[in-house]
């Protein structure tokens, strides 16, 4: 049997799945408590921001909060473009390089004190 080339999609699909779950479970409450409610003068968001600044757990959590939905989003864009009959070979590398670059930026932003 001739060797069939294995798809590397599982890697991106697992990140997509993780991002989708994170986006559904954690993202709404974090956006509400850390951004929207403080904007309307509700107190408490400050404590969460301090957690992100001061603890490893907070930093890791915030990094996952930004990075996982990024991979989920770019995976969706990649497949949406395929559905819209844009089949350029550049789409996949461009989408995932963008996710990688923004993940790097998020890492820099979250980890630097």
């Amino acid at each position: 049997m001739k060797e069939l080339k294995r798809s590397n999609e599982p890697l991106f699909w697992l990140l997509f799945g993780a991002g989708g779950m994170w986006g559904a479970i954690f993202a709404p409450i974090i956006i509400l408590s850390m951004l929207l409610l403080p904007a309307f003068g509700v107190e408490g968001g400050e404590r969460l921001w301090r957690l992100v600044h001061d603890s490893i757990f907070g930093k890791v959590f915030m990094l996952a909060m930004i990075v996982l939905p990024l991979w989920c989003g770019f995976h969706r864009i990649h497949h949406c473009l395929h559905d819209m009959k844009i089949h350029s070979a550049l789409v996949k590398p461009l989408c995932y390089l963008a996710a990688l670059a923004l993940s790097g930026l998020a890492f820099w932003a979250v980890v630097t004190p």
């Binding site: 049997m1 069939l4 080339k5 294995r6 798809s7 590397n8 999609e9 599982p10 699909w13 497949h79 559905d83």
Partner: peptide, 15 residues
């Protein structure tokens, strides 16, 4: 599995 895993036309073409 090699057919299911394959890059062109395997299960990963499903969205």
């Amino acid at each position: 599995m090699p057919h299911i895993n394959k890059e062109k036309g395997g299960v990963w073409a499903c969205t």
